Simulated assay, not measured.
Amino acid sequence: MCTGKCSKCIGRLLFPLGLCAIIANILLYFPNGEVLDPDKITDFVWYFHGILGAGLIVYLPAFLMLGAGGEGCCANRCGMLLSMLLSAMGFFGAVYCMIMSSLGLEQGPLCDPGDGDYVYPSETRHWSKESYLFNQTTWDICKKPKNVVLWNVTLFSILLAIGALEAVLCLIQVLNGLCGCLCGTCKRQRWTDVA
């Protein structure tokens, strides 16, 4: 596959992934579909890792990837170089999303265990020392908002998966952009037979 076509293909894949990351991050602000006070929402939601990291930062290289491999030798090489540099930035945005999602999963949700105070059950020893992620019987410790553990685990896991996929795609584009910058983008040239 030509480096220009590969670049456009990766760019087209990054758009829906970025949109899904933005939507998943926004949904984290409404645990179980409820509107809560900002101080009752899990801390790691406020780092905007889905909106900025896996969303807007990844959109920058995606837009450029669609234009990479255009007409003209200089435009191809310069476009691929810029695409490579922005893809590296997109890679770091996706890794940021992965790190914040992992930390959000590790910390667990902010919830009311029944006494009216919003706490992190993992920090107050409501949960055992083993990870709550693999022991679903402990999830019902959180009384309010209802199903907040499932809500957070699902959305943080989606963000983690999207960040990982975007990181791989951006890394592929860094390598593709390097090849395109050094070797140029391949184009079919039509040869006409001269009689």
Rank of each mutant, 00 (worst) to 15 (best):
E71P: 07
C78F: 06
F91N: 01
F134N: 11
T124N: 10
C181L: 14
L66P: 00
V58A: 10
C97I: 05
V45G: 06
L60P: 01
P61F: 04
M84N: 08
L182V: 15
G108E: 00
S83I: 07
C73K: 07
M80Q: 13
L159V: 10
N135H: 13
P121W: 04
L159E: 11
F156A: 11
E166R: 05
V153M: 15
P113W: 07
Y118A: 04
Y132D: 00
L178G: 14
I158F: 12
L52C: 05
L169I: 13
E123I: 03
S131L: 06
M100Q: 09
L60E: 05
E71A: 12
L66N: 04
S122R: 09
F156E: 14
F48H: 12
N176Y: 06
L110T: 07
P145K: 07
V149N: 02
G70A: 09
C111A: 04
G67Y: 01
S131Y: 07
A161D: 11
D140A: 07
V148N: 05
H49C: 08
H49M: 09
C74S: 12
Q107M: 06
I162V: 04
A167F: 03
N147T: 10
Q136R: 10
L169H: 05
L52K: 04
E166G: 15
N147P: 06
E106F: 08
K144Q: 14
H49Q: 10
P145T: 09
S102R: 11
Q107R: 07
E123T: 02
P109L: 01
M84E: 11
C78V: 08
P113M: 02
M80E: 10
T154F: 13
C73G: 06
M89S: 08
G116Y: 05
I141E: 07
S83C: 11
L110I: 05
M98F: 12
C73W: 09
K143A: 08
Q107F: 02
L159Y: 13
D140M: 08
P61E: 04
W127E: 03
E166A: 13
G79H: 00
T185P: 10
F48S: 10
I41P: 00
L60K: 01
L160S: 11
L175G: 15
P61V: 05
C73Y: 08
G72T: 11
C74P: 04
H126P: 02
Y120R: 02
F63P: 00
L103V: 09
M89D: 06
A164E: 12
S157D: 12
L105W: 01
Y47S: 14
R77S: 11
R77T: 13
F48T: 10
C181T: 15
L175Y: 11
